[in-house]
Design a protein around this nucleic acid. Structure first.
Ligand SMILES: [Mn+2]
Ligand SMILES: [Mn+2]
Ligand SMILES: [Zn+2]
Ligand SMILES: [Zn+2]
Lengths: 155, 155
DNA sequence: CTTAAAACAGGAATAATTACTATTGTAAAC
DNA sequence: GTTTACAATAGTAATTATTCCTGTTTTAAG
């Protein structure tokens, strides 16, 4: 981290973002701002590595870990969102009938949700390409974990 | 792999699955059958490790790689399905407005799908727990990749 | 200016999954 | 019933995305 003044001059463009960050009790560091700006400017929904490569052009000393750390923090504070689902172990199902799943964020059990709870999703998404599959996934606290305050680790 | 005859006697229970596998041009090996049976018998939507631990009790010599390899093959052949989404790098979005995404399986670009294409999902899923979030994700070939036969790696 | 807490860079560690290789099982041809 | 070619497996190494750790720098507050 060398020459912070200079870095600040480069990266601190508009004043909107810094204020927004302060409101969420997040310090507007140059690295953080650069990451957030990169995400806000482009609509490519980039991953950590892609953001890293871009931000590096302005802040050559930034580390990949800083990108990951900030993405995590910004997501937790509700300032950005994840496009993909939570990255956890792959789980499988032998039941091929059309249905969806409710995944408990506490005990990580997976419950079947019948299609009746879904309603068919219109073919309007075909505007973007040939839809091969639609994945619907509910997350939350299962009944068992809600009532029993102390969540056990089921599965 | 020792004493195959014995293993076969143990694991080859019903005759339905072996035939089903043959129909899909998949050889009904004892390991494969055990994995498939484990998945079909329980409705817990297990991950590879969990299946491994269970199958190991009957086939102590089975390797974890065999479980992974077969889950991959069975999914590819359409005999089982994945509960969770494809395991790839996490991607982020600064646009917090409610919308969904279309992910191209060829160029891996992510396109925004407006809510108009979704229809609200009924609160019927509350039957399973307190729904905190709903994730809808479309997969397929984007227009660009469909027309241009030779897919480029966009993003 | 001093000081405590937050954030950072760089590199090591972790965890899930896949790749590699020598060996074994299978099915079909002879 | 042998032979033979190919598929599948076990065991282990490698890969990949992400997180953790440690010493240092930056920030904010007194
Ligand atoms: Mn299911
Ligand atoms: Mn989006
Ligand atoms: Zn639960
Ligand atoms: Zn595409």
């Amino acid at each position: 981290m060398a020459n912070l003044k200079q870095i600040n001059r480069i990266t601190t463009g508009g004043k909107g973002l810094p204020k927004s960050l302060r409101r969420h009790a997040v310090r507007p560091t140059p690295q953080r701002l650069a990451i957030l700006r990169e995400l806000a400017a482009r609509k490519i929904h980039p991953d950590a590595e892609t953001i890293y490569e871009q931000v590096r052009q302005r802040l050559p000393a930034i580390s990949l870990d800083t990108v990951y750390r900030n993405l995590r923090l910004l997501e937790a504070r509700g300032l950005i969102m994840r496009v993909t689902t939570v990255r956890e172990r792959a789980r499988y199902d032998a039941d091929l009938s059309p249905h969806s799943h409710f995944i408990c964020s506490k005990c990580s059990r997976v419950l079947d949700v019948p299609v009746s709870a879904l309603r068919p999703i219109p073919a309007e998404a075909d505007a973007f390409g040939t839809v091969a599959s639609v994945h619907v996934e509910f997350r939350g606290l299962c009944h068992q974990c809600r009532t029993v305050a102390d969540g056990q680790q089921g599965q």
